[in-house]
Design a binder for these strands. Sequence first.
RNA 1: GAGGGUGUAGCGAAGCUGGUUAUCGCGACGGCCUGUCACGCCGUAGAUCGCGGGUUCGAGUCCCGUCACUCUCGCCA
Length: 598
Amino acid sequence: MAEEVFSQRTTTCGSLTKADNGAKVVLNGWVHRDRNHGALHFINLRDRYGITQVVVDDDASKELQAVANELHMEYCIAVTGVVRLRPDSMVNPEMTTGEVEVKAERIEILSKCAPLPFQIDDGNEPREDLRLKYRYLDLRTQGMQKRMKLRHDFIFACRKYLTSRDFYEIETPTMIKSTPEGARDFLVPSRIYPGKFYALPQSPQLFKQILMVGGMDKYFQIARCYRDEDARGDRQLEFTQLDLEMSFVKRDDVLSLMEDLFGSVFKEVMDYDLPARWRRLSYHDALNTYGCDKPDLRFDLPLSDVNEIAKKSSFATFKDIVSNGGYVKAICAPKSETVDFSRKFITSLEDAAKIYGAQGLAWIKVGENNTFTGGVSKFFAGLEDELASMMDAKEGDMILFVAHQDWKKCCASLSAVRTKLGKDLNLIRKSFEFCWIVDFPLFEYNEEESHWEAAHHMFSMPQAEYLDTLESDPGSVKGDLYDLVLNGYEVASGSIRIHDVELQKRIFRICNFDDETAEERFGFLLNSFRYGAPPHGGIAPGVDRMIMIMAEESSIHEVIAFPKNTAGISPMDDSPSLVDEKQLDDLHLIIKYPESKT
RNA sequence: GAGGGUGUAGCGAAGCUGGUUAUCGCGACGGCCUGUCACGCCGUAGAUCGCGGGUUCGAGUCCCGUCACUCUCGCCA
């Protein structure tokens, strides 16, 4: 190895204070800004820890002046010099190191920087694909540095807390057997066994259950999960879960552990005090009251059932839908100082509703003494006081209605209106509002394939009172399932699991897996249950989503070091990519291209 | 699979109902500058307006197609 190839730092760029006055130091870092006054140079030197001002004085040697003149932004340099106090009038209170500067005696250029494809930290954020292509530059920005720290702090705090509660961190395989339900699997072809494939796990579900059978009692893992589905702002094809599982627990043990965990983590990481216990809503109540199973509780605006009064109105559309067993729901938009309930605004709300299946959005403006104007007001003649009182509507408010045959579509459409109102009317409080959604239905009917399937997954325990009616009335069965919702995002999902072979088989059968298929697919799980399986349950918070919300971002890309774009491509390393014929041969694969491609 | 939005110099943007040489900020390059901290000042270069076709005397602008990115629906136990 070479001897000393560069002057190694004695401290970082965020640490010097006036207590260090007179100290000889070496700093390593990047040229953040370079202010050249001819004979006088100011260089803001940046590393992960902060920024320190380096000065090249007019008394500097010719050599030092020459090097200083050569510098450009993002050059990686080593500065040897002496810490000194800035003149009083030159102190920069904006910088933590603003009371001092380093008078350079020597500057070494460790690595030059090519002309930048975009500027770092100048406020003009480039398009995301460019940021992703040059992620190593993007990561140097203050925002990314801050979010990577938040991510580390969050994960470390989780590890620490769970360890204190007797959890073991255990890794499970990332090449496993493909299972037939849920999302599409990513497959890994086997070289040794032609035609056979591993799958990348969609979650460590079965393995963590088997860890419980193995007597590990309490387990967690920062687990990478893979699902081959289209991306969104809050999800991509590979993501990270804080996966955990516990033995000999009931639902409330898991819920209170999570409350304690995040209470501790939010305090430690953000100095934020969460309530000790969080609101619980049944799945049905969440849909009925907020229209969706992941309500944003940073603002209220509940939905109301107005079937009864709709029936009494003279509006044929509502009456028809109600008499055919459909639903009419309404929401009251509070009077706003900043937003005018114009035709244009109402249309924008209607557009939001239509995305989720609403045919239209009916509206009424409430005036003085419950006088109704506009929209469908004339059909509610004589019902003004009743409706206004039911909706708690006051002068200046607007009542909005969605009517639909299908309860879920009615809820979802009006929920979209609620969300838009929250944003547009500026009703969203700045806070972290957790809530539990519990009592999910265990099964949903798949119309296309004409059979029942698991609403979450097939390993969740039905609630005891439904054990006798699983087969006769699957649709009404509620499970010991729970979702954790934060600010309108689903951030965790879990359940108490089945640990009994016969019960598990009954669930498989209802989901259209005969015993033979179930044994073939899930035999290893069923087998483990034959050897003294403990009651167990768990949950898996999405790490990316949690940190995204904590960072007040709207895309998980902002909290993942190297994310894929929405098309599943990584612009930096250009994956996915073609491979050599030789590699395909080794894997016994022949590519069958779609017709449109070459 | 479907819909919306965006695409103008290395980056971020402006460019109105079509009208001369496409504008601004940052950056790059050259020069000046002793207390800046988004330093300042003077100057220079840099754009087939995503791509293809059409309408028109004339297209960055209008129309059709296409590609890329992005948001959303479907999908995501």
